[in-house]
Design a protein around this nucleic acid. Structure first.
Lengths: 244, 244
DNA sequence: GAAAATTTGTCCGTATGTATT
DNA sequence: AAATACATACGGACAAATTTT
């Protein structure tokens, strides 16, 4: 790992740039041999900064719960994770990552009624202005938040999906109760952007963090659209895989 | 667009957080009506900062070529773009986006020989230590850089692919000359991270910018792996679409 | 065309945060 | 731990260019 250069006077403090890179390295498995981060003096040399600056970066990571400094021993890696989300016709939140974590949980943040915008109407193949149910959910894996999603459902078919979801905590189960035995992913659109205010609080991120945004359309087995959703994933914690 | 809150003392300067949000809003089409950004005083009020801080943010965006300030008139939006990259069995760089831009171009930055790491060997289904050809390429669309990629090919089959690519500027054509009539995408892995030093120069980004990273495996029609590549896209300029 | 209002550009000074030594 | 240098953020005042009245 040679010449990790860091840029000055870019509006991002050196300690934060370094913290971001160390976090990435940890998730990439660069320090797996020892289970700990290199000594502060080594890192200071590598990044070309003073040891105090490295200490600020490690303090930030310790605050996030990613590392833990032990006097006399070093800085231990507490947690590393990047969950793999397969994207396929059968994409679901919990099933795909079921073998990677011990516990997945989904909670309802809010729900309400919207009218279809022209964009939503086009996707769901309904009339603009038609009533929709909106669900805002937060997905956890092993007690860590990984994604927040907003989903829209045609109100005529799924008028009380919010209540059912609140009880079951699963879209798949809610669909089943409402007569949709199965559903498939039609298309997924993936972009990346900086975390907004809601991401920072809901996903417990720090400013400058990255979110992967997946806009997805699901349809029932008759190919009638049943759900359009916009999900925002903490980019540090996930990867998407597309198998063809 | 209410209450855009901004976080202080997080290691990320206010002007950079604000610049990132305005860039996102521009790409999202929030200011399409006038083709310009709201006045500095309005933005200062919205973000709850001094006008000077807004000016720093807009100066950064002007530096990127995204906006242009005109005294007395306002701050005009110069450019917004997000190319759509379909990911499927038939994924290629130029063909998928061919209808979105006037000109695509690909250039060879560097080439060389590597030996297969354990990870690369596993992906390409060859022995670790086997010789590989490495190509580093830069993809342009309409004279703007959009992606930089590093690709590896088994040297026994594709010993002089670098030369052929240098002439043709196309992986597909190079494969054809080397006896691979057609090839398909086996799997794509998508992550997002902050731009590194190479991204900043090659893709003309500013620090704190985001890159979408696609790690892809291509195989010939006998399902023998022929290429493993890691491509880094300027996240502001692209979106990936997965059709199932 | 002239005046007023709007909007960006530049200058001053002060306080706090960041990074090095 | 303390001193130093630079970046960041704020506040105010005024100039310059453009649009509106």
């Amino acid at each position: 790992m040679a010449g990790q250069r860091i840029q000055r006077q870019t509006g991002v403090a050196l300690w934060r740039q370094i913290a971001d890179r160390i976090r990435t390295s940890i998730n990439h498995g660069d320090f797996d041999e020892n289970g700990m981060v290199p000594p502060e003096t080594t890192l200071a040399l590598q990044f070309g900064v003073n040891r105090h600056t490295i200490r600020s970066a490690l303090a930030a990571l310790a605050q996030e719960g990613i590392v833990r400094a032990v006097q006399g021993r070093g800085t231990l890696i507490e947690r590393k994770e990047r969950l793999s989300f397969p994207i396929s016709r059968r994409t679901r939140f919990s099933q795909g990552i079921g073998d990677q974590v011990r516990e997945t949980r989904s909670m309802l943040l809010a729900s309400g009624e919207d009218v279809a915008s022209s964009e939503l109407a086009k996707q769901l193949r309904i009339e603009p202005g038609a009533p929709l149910i909106r669900l805002e959910t937060l997905g956890h894996a092993d007690h860590r938040p990984v994604s927040r999603a907003t989903s829209w459902f045609p109100a005529d078919r799924f008028g009380n999906i919010a209540e059912i979801y609140r009880v079951t905590g699963s879209i798949t189960k809610a669909f089943k109760e409402l007569g949709v035995a199965d559903y498939v992913r039609v298309v997924t659109e993936i972009t990346a952007t900086h975390a907004d205010e809601g991401d920072l609080t809901d996903l417990q991120l720090s400013p400058g963090a990255i979110v992967l945004v997946a806009q997805a359309l699901n349809a029932d087995l008759d190919n009638v659209p049943v759900q359009y959703s916009i999900s925002r994933f903490a980019a540090d914690r996930v990867r998407f895989t597309v198998e063809n």
